[in-house]
């Protein structure tokens, strides 16, 4: 029986999953639910355990404790080849001895293999490159082959391990948008691992922020960004001013005729916006994000203000 049809709950459920390597706790008590059909991102600094978590779901590692459930079936004891989950590897891990078509067909059996390969190649604009070998492809093409090879398997869950990190910055933004479109089109749940918070915020329905082997917060990007529950989450997702235990993001801080007086210490040009760095009379630094034509000069006295609803209070 196809579990996809009978299971209405989350496609993936982690129950208190921990992974311990020799004297090193990689993942601690992680519990997560990934809704079916969503674009879910795991974001965190390098070494936070997100890649280990992905490997636990793919089956390359076994959890020390805890359970992994896929569509209502417990899978943490199954080898990778028995899990209806596929992975796009960070380095793509394409088979160098096989052509593009050979790579995409690797996991398929049966009469419809060539049709399915052709459809997957078409979906990722790889038609015409069937007989190329991986070393004859550009970075972007290799990435699309890796995606095609995994998607052609029609997994319940697609794991993507920093698939954009090997691309140059310009291509990255373009591929990012394509990835989002692709996910919507194929309707497969994407579990996307990245250390790039901007990428995670831009792409995801839900993000989970990890730090030091734990999941700190899970929620829609906007909620996690605006209502961080820990200082780590607040700082990781973007610049944050801290005045005592009150946090406020630079884009919420305005220069105004009233408000708290401050002295501009530096002005940083960032292209579309500017960051005005100023010192409050209490001695604390604060950054206000303003349009380039509104920027004061260093040494000027200004007033800064923000509305209390943009504040977060964290110990």
């Amino acid at each position: 029986m196809d579990p996809k049809r009978t299971h209405d709950g989350p496609v993936l459920e982690l129950r208190a999953v921990s992974k311990e390597f020799a004297a090193h706790q990689a993942v601690s008590e992680v519990s997560l639910e990934v809704p079916r059909g969503s674009f879910f991102s795991l974001v965190g600094p390098s070494g936070c355990g997100k890649t280990t978590l992905l490997r636990l779901i793919a089956g390359f590692e076994t959890p020390t404790t805890g359970e992994v459930w896929l569509s209502g079936q417990r899978i943490d004891h199954l080898p990778p080849y028995q899990r209806n989950v596929n992975t796009v590897f960070q380095s793509y891990a394409l088979f160098p001895h096989l052509t593009v078509a050979g790579n995409v067909a690797f996991g398929l059996r049966g009469d419809d293999t060539s049709t399915r390969v052709a459809r997957a190649l078409d979906q990722l604009q790889l038609t015409g490159k069937e007989s190329r070998r991986p070393d004859q492809l550009s970075g972007g093409e290799r990435q699309r082959v890796a995606l095609a090879r995994a998607l052609v398997m029609e997994p319940e869950l697609l794991l993507l391990d920093e698939p954009l990190s090997a691309l140059d910055p310009l291509l990255r933004k373009q591929v990012r948008a394509e990835l989002r479109d692709l996910q919507k089109r194929v309707g497969i749940t994407f579990l996307f691992v990245t250390h790039d918070q901007e990428e995670a915020l831009a792409l995801s329905d839900t993000i989970a922020v990890m730090d030091k082997s734990r999941v700190e917060q899970v929620g829609p990007p906007r909620e996690v960004y605006c209502r961080p529950r820990t200082r780590f989450v607040a700082n990781f997702l973007g610049p944050m001013n801290w005045i005592g235990n009150i946090g406020v993001r630079p884009e919420s801080v305005r220069l105004a005729s009233d408000g708290r007086p401050a002295v501009v210490t530096n002005v940083v040009y960032l292209g579309s916006v500017m960051h005005v760095e100023a010192r409050l009379e209490t001695g604390e630094g604060i950054i206000a994000q303003v349009a380039p034509d509104q920027a004061p000069e260093a040494g000027m006295g200004v007033h800064v203000k923000w509305s209390t609803e943009d504040e977060v209070r964290l110990p």
Partner: peptide, 12 residues
């Protein structure tokens, strides 16, 4: 990683 990729794609 190539062997992991093979296992990921269902190869015993």
């Amino acid at each position: 990683r190539l062997l992991e990729a093979a296992a990921d794609l269902g190869a015993r």
